[in-house]
Amino acid sequence: MCVIDISPQIETRRITLRAPAMADVSRLTALGGDRDISRMTTRMPWPYGRADAEDFVARCQAQDRRRDNTFAIDLEDEGVIGVLGLFTPPGGHLEIGYWIGKPYWGRGLATEACQGALSWTRQTWRKKLVVAGHFADNPASGQVLIKSGFLYTGVVETKPSVARGEAVATRMMVWLA
């Protein structure tokens, strides 16, 4: 097993995936504060404020990097545009989740971030299986995952959405190294 003591940094053509820092809080708050972002995630509250972003960064800094790695998605010449996380739920398989700020939608940045993270996951972290899910009412996220190499499992689970305050049908997918 690969032991990772510090947060890795992953470079792709246009973006850098790096550890979230307290200096990112204002930007995370501004982008993550859009209801269209938080309602498509399981964990982000609505409204999403500065205290939420500060708590998020603090939790990222305390991660056990053998099990979890969360990245700020940093676009060249723009700064932070979103977040990507690889996390292991209790009793579950490694899972990926992400969000991109609305001004950056439709530019292939989520796909680039996912592909970069999965390449690192396979080559450096030596993980062979990653699961993902997207809310059934968010087919764009499904397309990102398909372009990143995920396949649908045929399973639809009900997952919570903190922002929505309810459980949402979630189409499950799997990626194999």
Rank of each mutant, 00 (worst) to 15 (best):
residue 134 H to S: 03
residue 122 R to Y: 10
residue 115 Q to I: 05
residue 151 L to M: 06
residue 113 A to T: 11
residue 154 G to P: 09
residue 152 Y to H: 12
residue 127 K to E: 11
residue 105 W to R: 10
residue 138 N to L: 07
residue 128 K to C: 10
residue 136 A to W: 00
residue 140 A to Q: 15
residue 114 C to R: 00
residue 108 G to H: 08
residue 140 A to C: 00
residue 110 A to M: 04
residue 150 F to W: 05
residue 127 K to C: 05
residue 130 V to L: 03
residue 113 A to R: 12
residue 135 F to V: 08
residue 155 V to A: 11
residue 104 Y to D: 04
residue 122 R to N: 01
residue 110 A to T: 02
residue 109 L to D: 01
residue 144 V to Y: 09
residue 149 G to H: 08
residue 120 W to A: 10
residue 152 Y to S: 11
residue 151 L to W: 01
residue 121 T to H: 13
residue 107 R to S: 02
residue 112 E to P: 02
residue 141 S to A: 14
residue 158 T to I: 04
residue 151 L to H: 14
residue 162 V to N: 12
residue 129 L to V: 13
residue 103 P to L: 01
residue 148 S to W: 04
residue 103 P to V: 08
residue 160 P to A: 15
residue 126 R to E: 12
residue 119 S to E: 15
residue 102 K to A: 13
residue 121 T to G: 08
residue 137 D to M: 03
residue 139 P to Q: 03
residue 152 Y to L: 11
residue 129 L to E: 13
residue 143 Q to L: 14
residue 161 S to W: 07
residue 155 V to R: 15
residue 128 K to P: 06
residue 143 Q to C: 02
residue 123 Q to P: 01
residue 146 I to K: 14
residue 153 T to N: 09
residue 140 A to V: 01
residue 124 T to V: 15
residue 122 R to F: 07
residue 140 A to G: 09
residue 123 Q to M: 11
residue 148 S to R: 13
residue 135 F to D: 03
residue 115 Q to K: 11
residue 118 L to E: 04
residue 162 V to E: 14
residue 111 T to N: 07
residue 157 E to V: 02
residue 116 G to V: 01
residue 147 K to G: 00
residue 117 A to S: 11
residue 134 H to M: 04
residue 118 L to F: 05
residue 115 Q to G: 05
residue 130 V to G: 01
residue 139 P to Y: 02
residue 144 V to N: 10
residue 133 G to Q: 04
residue 124 T to S: 12
residue 137 D to H: 08
residue 135 F to Y: 13
residue 106 G to P: 12
residue 131 V to M: 00
residue 136 A to K: 05
residue 112 E to F: 11
residue 129 L to M: 02
residue 158 T to L: 15
residue 104 Y to G: 01
residue 119 S to T: 12
residue 131 V to R: 09
residue 159 K to S: 03
residue 115 Q to M: 14
residue 148 S to Q: 03
residue 149 G to A: 04
residue 125 W to Q: 04
residue 132 A to E: 08
residue 125 W to M: 05
residue 147 K to M: 05
residue 134 H to L: 07
residue 161 S to C: 13
residue 152 Y to M: 06
residue 112 E to A: 06
residue 155 V to L: 08
residue 114 C to H: 06
residue 150 F to A: 08
residue 155 V to Q: 15
residue 154 G to S: 11
residue 141 S to K: 02
residue 145 L to G: 09
residue 145 L to V: 13
residue 129 L to I: 12
residue 128 K to I: 00
residue 110 A to N: 06
residue 158 T to N: 12
residue 163 A to G: 05
residue 148 S to E: 06
residue 122 R to W: 13
residue 124 T to E: 12
residue 118 L to K: 08
residue 127 K to D: 01
residue 155 V to G: 01
residue 114 C to F: 00
residue 143 Q to D: 14
residue 160 P to L: 03
residue 134 H to I: 09
residue 108 G to T: 10
residue 140 A to S: 10
residue 141 S to I: 00
residue 129 L to D: 03
residue 145 L to A: 03
residue 134 H to A: 05
residue 135 F to E: 06
residue 162 V to R: 14
residue 133 G to E: 00
residue 163 A to K: 09
residue 131 V to L: 08
residue 151 L to K: 15
residue 149 G to K: 11
residue 153 T to D: 10
residue 134 H to G: 06
residue 106 G to H: 06
residue 106 G to E: 10
residue 129 L to R: 15
residue 153 T to S: 06
residue 136 A to H: 03
residue 105 W to P: 02
